[in-house]
Amino acid sequence: MVRLTADLIWKSPHFFNAIKERELDLRGNKIAVIENLGATEDQFDTIDLSDNEIVKLENVPYLNRLGTMLINNNRITRINPNIGEFLPNLHTLVLTNNRIVNLVEIDPLASLPKLHFLSLLDNNITKKPNYRLYVINKLKSLRVLDFKKVKNKERLEAKNLFSSKEVIEEIQRTPTKSETPNVSEVIEEQQMPKVVAPTPEQIIAIKAAIVNSQTLEEVARLEKALKSGQLPADLLLDNVDEKHEDMIHDDRGQADGESNDTQEQRNTDSASMEQVYGHIDMCPSKH
């Protein structure tokens, strides 16, 4: 794990990039948390944070000049609700290959006043039903989403769909609103929108597995079950798994630094496995 310090910012390459914008290249530094970006002194049109391990898009200072953020290949799951206050001129945001899962997690992007170009390719959010229309409905200024132009008839269609589907929208909102949710409650709520719910036996098995998962070995086992299970089970377990991983990480974080390093290495291995899995998954969908 590497911290994003002022020193790192000053040592990283500064250059005019392929599209003639002033760019800061922070690529491939294993950065886990965005911080200290004030050290850029608002000198860059583009900041490239690709190939790092960032989990939350937050801690961004006021950067008036910044127009493009490239955050490919990270672990973004959450976005700061007030991000629009700090990036008034951001027009291009690339979040390809991250871990945004639920539709509501992109709501904070509506606070960016000039966001025209957004990429959410290779995130699980793109597999949700009505994903594209939901994003178009939420982000009014968007012109290009996932490298396809947003057409006016899509906006109208999205408006019609979501004005008459308040109930569905509420259901989709509920799972992530509670910061510390009851585990079984979350499971039940997430099951409701799905067409095919797991059988009672599967529910019992999932609960038992979650109760027992107190160590990393159990997490690894759950991941194995993920890969061999059906799609609904995959999605369900994936969500629960991530939350548990966060909890475990927090617990170990309270312990000593050495344990933290060990945790970091295991997370890296886990991440690389998921990358490989995601890579395999990408091929057929593109064909």
């Binding site: 392929a18 599209i19 690709s50």
Partner: peptide, 17 residues
């Protein structure tokens, strides 16, 4: 050019478009 830059940065650093 901007779109090509955005779609291909996921594979590595781009020198020119």
């Amino acid at each position: 050019k901007k779109s090509l830059n955005a779609v291909f940065t996921q594979f590595g650093k781009i020198l020119e478009v």
